[in-house]
């Protein structure tokens, strides 16, 4: 009887170790900052990395109201249909990123820094974690505001 228990204990220990090693292989969740926005409406289709917008960096420097009231950014990830044409025209990001208030659009890779294929999403968002797992990517033709 005792040998049977020993064998069972040994067996469960081996299985436990295997399970632990298996768990190590499971990929860990991304650890980007809370409220980082990945914007991939058109970037992937155009062969660019998706743009990453760090909320924390910008809210240290500007009140919410400056972008979300004065510049007209909607409260929705990917909901502004921003294109490079609009930015160069001085709209959205282009209001600051014009070489005067901040660095200009020549520094492509500073914004377009995301992992290729990452869909448009709001990092760490409650809605995304609990309700809707992903935002639908917009169609490439849907550029009209």
């Amino acid at each position: 009887m005792s040998s049977k228990i020993k064998r069972n204990v040994l067996k469960s220990m081996i299985i436990g170790v295997l399970a632990y090693m298996g768990a190590l292989g499971v990929p860990q969740p991304a650890q980007a900052e809370y409220a980082d926005v990945v914007i991939n409406n058109y970037a992937d289709a155009a062969g660019m990395r998706p743009a990453v917008f760090p909320h924390w960096f910008h809210r240290i420097r500007f009140r919410c109201k400056v972008c979300h009231a004065d510049l007209g950014f909607a409260f929705k990830a990917g909901g502004n249909k921003i294109t490079m044409a609009k930015i160069i025209d001085g709209k959205f990001c282009g209001a600051c990123h014009n070489g005067e208030i901040s660095w200009s659009v020549e520094n492509c890779a500073m914004c377009h820094s995301g992992n290729p294929g990452t869909p448009t999403h709001f990092h760490g968002s409650t809605v995304q974690r609990l309700i809707a797992p992903a935002y639908k990517p917009l169609k490439a033709t849907d550029t009209k505001k």
Binding site: P27, A30, N115, P116, T118, H123, R129
Partner: peptide
């Protein structure tokens, strides 16, 4: 990396230091 993006959490937690290149949404090759 793309498989787990939606579950990521990082409320700028104390003592946690995750460089941007390793945070899971930035491309480390960039």
């Amino acid at each position: 990396i793309t498989a787990v993006w939606s579950r990521g959490l990082h409320f700028q937690t104390e003592g946690e230091v995750v460089p941007l290149a390793e945070d899971g949404i930035h491309d480390p090759d960039n």
